[in-house]
């Protein structure tokens, strides 16, 4: 027993304290969070745009709108139908973006946008059609009605889902190391390579778990507050 604890503390020392390795976890975590935050912002902007095009194009004969609709459909089909890692490697590989971190911002953002657009689309469709009609009946354009009446209600409806997307992104970004980005997973693996020991992986798993657990609890509280405000 004593021997076991001795070996464990030695492993922890090697994986955390020695050579200031704990800094690598923190630096990696910081980068992971940065990528997730920027990606979710890009994703939300793209997602709203795509959702607006798709819902507006429904039943519309406007050729410009239909053109954009084709582009948006192609975008969501391709992104959702191919592995995210391949997308990331292509983005990095075409060397238009030699900086891995920026490639991650864009790559994860574009990927997230394709999924989030469906969330926003259902959010927009969940807003009663009478809201748009009433706005149009007052002479507002479709765009004005969308931005001042429908979209604010849709965003409120899907906010918990977007927050959940952010939680998912934190884990999904763990493939960033494949394009030489020193995120939490990559740094952890580097430590493993130096210590010839898997303890660091458990530490990283713990960090991911604690982070997503805390965020999930915040999300639950957020949802409860929203349900309450909807009731009255």
């Amino acid at each position: 027993m004593e021997q076991f604890f001795d070996r464990l503390s030695e492993k922890l020392y090697q994986s955390v304290i020695y050579d200031n390795r704990w800094k690598m976890y923190l630096e990696g975590l910081s980068l992971t969070l940065q990528i997730a935050v920027v990606a979710v912002i890009i994703g939300v902007v793209l997602g709203i745009a795509v959702a607006m095009v798709k819902t507006s194009a429904q039943g519309s004969k406007n050729p410009i709108l239909r053109f954009f609709n084709v582009i948006c459909t192609a975008y969501t089909t391709v992104i959702r139908g191919t592995p995210q890692m391949i997308q990331l490697l292509i983005l990095y590989g075409i060397s238009a973006i030699p900086n891995g971190v920026i490639a991650c911002f864009i790559g994860f953002g574009i990927n997230s946008g394709a999924y989030v657009s469906e969330t926003f689309r259902s959010g927009i469709q969940s807003v009663d059609g009478g809201q748009m009609e009433a706005a149009r009946s007052l002479g507002l354009t479709r765009w004005q009605a969308m931005t001042s009446v429908v979209l604010p209600q849709a965003v409120k409806n899907v906010l918990p889902a977007i927050f959940n997307e952010f939680i998912m992104l934190i884990k999904d970004t763990s493939i960033a190391g494949y394009i030489a980005v020193n995120d939490l997973t990559k740094n952890t693996n580097s430590i493993r390579g130096r210590t010839y020991d898997s303890t660091s992986l458990f530490i990283a798993a713990g960090i991911y778990l604690i982070l997503t657990y805390i965020l999930t609890q915040i999300l639950k509280r957020l949802e409860r507050r929203f349900r309450k405000s909807d009731r009255n």
Partner: peptide, 8 residues
């Protein structure tokens, strides 16, 4: 159904 703007 009135259709007042719920967000305003």
């Amino acid at each position: 159904h009135f259709n007042l703007f719920n967000n305003l």
